[in-house]
Structure formats: structure tokens, C-alpha cells
Design a protein around this nucleic acid. Sequence first.
DNA 1: TCAGGAGGTTTTAATTTGAAACCATCGTGT
DNA 2: ACACGATGGTTTCAAATTAAAACCTCCTGA
Lengths: 152, 152
Amino acid sequence: MAKRVSHRDSMCGVARPLDAIGDWWSLLIVRDAFDGLRRFGEFQKSLGLAKNILSARLRNLLAHGIMETVPASDGSPYQEYVLTEKGRSLFPLLVALRQWGEDFFFEPDEAHVLLVDRKNGLPVRRLELRAQDGRVVGAEDTMVWLPPASPE
Amino acid sequence: MAKRVSHRDSMCGVARPLDAIGDWWSLLIVRDAFDGLRRFGEFQKSLGLAKNILSARLRNLLAHGIMETVPASDGSPYQEYVLTEKGRSLFPLLVALRQWGEDFFFEPDEAHVLLVDRKNGLPVRRLELRAQDGRVVGAEDTMVWLPPASPE
DNA sequence: TCAGGAGGTTTTAATTTGAAACCATCGTGT
DNA sequence: ACACGATGGTTTCAAATTAAAACCTCCTGA
């Protein structure tokens, strides 16, 4: 799980998160958690993965503070797995993944679920990156910049 | 690479893309491609991964139409790897990953690169999901909905 | 012509994954 | 009290994946 990171990536804002959610299953677990799943068995049935793998993934998500266990909610003696604030902050990433998937992984006539506004049932807008002044910007319009170190 | 997908995920807009970019390295390669890297050796040096793995990952990205090879650009007899339109469409996802990483994987006083507007050097805004009417919506405000099948 | 560098592939070992079996705890019925 | 199933895991072991290193090929420059 803990992969070695190259010199160049040791400080990279893209590489670090991948240690937490960079495998196939973790993001699917998080997505299911957004859908309201909370119990070990629910995740296992929904995703169809081996129990030991689910166990390992949940442990990793807990260790990274993306999910946490809570005692119970319906009186049953078991614990439940719920997203933390850090985990809920993955929502835009999940939406980005979903929108990309919808654009490129379905045939034009193939049915698929849509993410819609609960208020009125209309599809949500496309995610857009905007500059401070509100312009929509693409990759060509941006660059990464390392601020100079502060004096001390 | 090609993982089995459970019944539930066979049509899921989140699971399908993960087959293409759901491993640790692929997204880092794509990020480097956004940064202008094009050559096999450049990727290898930047990421520090084994050559056979890079080879396999590039092959997978090519097979999924995320990158493509172009004959040359500087006269050298080799090919270069560049993002396709599909690959460039990963930009919002990469930004979402980066923003999440910056929020949760750096100490408050730890320096890290910022994504800034080329025009004026100001940091870009945070990615936000908006409904049709322009409201910013979170996970709680949305749901997935499967449109009814069309008659034929 | 020979030394290297770029761009890979092959080989082999270590790590990870996955399926199945196993185990522990709780609740229920009898 | 006891059997039994459901839930929530852990252990075991085989199979697949990954990683490191060695190797190969083509091209270039001295």
C-alpha cells in the first residue's frame, strides 16, 4: 500500500493523496458511502469484493482519516463506517471522475445514471475550473508555482 | 489490469474509468503529460518507476485512448507520448485530486506548489459543483437518477 | 569502430490480491 | 441451556501483479 515516492513527487500535491485512495476499490467504497452505505456487509454486497480486501481497504481509509467508525445507529451491536469531513471533501473528485466516465465510457445510446439536483431533478452542471476573475480556465491557462519559502 | 466488475457496478459511471486510470501510476503519468513531458525517458526520470511498469502503463493509456504516440517533434527518431482529447479531459479530475491533497496532506506551514492562472499568477478558484440554476451543491443536494429507457 | 544513450523487453523475485475456509460474537427460537 | 443463523471479520494459500535488474536493439557522435 505505502509506495515509495520519487524525489520529485515527495512534495507533490497529486502523489500524496494517491497513497490514500489510489487503488481501485477505495474510491468505490467512498462512493458507496456517499450513497448511504454504512455497514461492512453492505459494502461487500454492493462491490462484490473479497472480505479480506474490504477489510484492508476500510482499515486504510480509517488510517487516513477518510472514514471513521461509529458505534451503531439502529441498535445493532456492530459498528458502522461513515465518511469524515476529509472523506466528504472527496465529492468533487468523485463528480469529476463520474463526468469523465460518462463522457468517454458509454456508447452514445447507452443508458446511464445522471447526477441530478435533489431540489428539481435537473442534471447538475459540468465541473469547471475558474480563475479568480471568474474566467473558466483549462490546463493551458494554468501553471504550477512554488511560492518562495517564508523567511524562517 | 482488467478487473472484474460486480453486477452493481457494471453500469456505473464511476467504476468504468477506474479500469483505465485506477492505478497509482497512470494519473501521475497524465499529470506529467500536462506538465509537458512527452518522452519515455522523461516520464521514467520524473516518476522513478521501473521501465517495464512505465511501458505497461503507457500501453494501457494508449489502449484506452488517453494518450497517443506521435512520430517526433525535434527530429529524433523516437516517438513521443501526448494526451488525446480524452486525456486532456482529465484536467478537472486532476485539479480535484490536487486541491484535496493540498487541503489534507500538507502541514499548515508546509510549502507546496499552487495552481495559478498564467495570466496574472493568482491561484485558481476552488472547484465547485453547481446546479443548473447556479447554486453550489454538495453531496447532500444531489442524487443519482437512472433515466427511463427510451421506447426501443 | 567503438562508447554511449534512448527506448524498450525479458527474466526472476517479492509483494499484493482474491477465493475460500475458518472463527468469534450476538440475537433468536425452543 | 442450547442450537442455529446472521454479521463481521481473520487466516490460509494459490494466483496475479509489481518491481528490479539484466539484457537487447537501434541510433549517434567521437
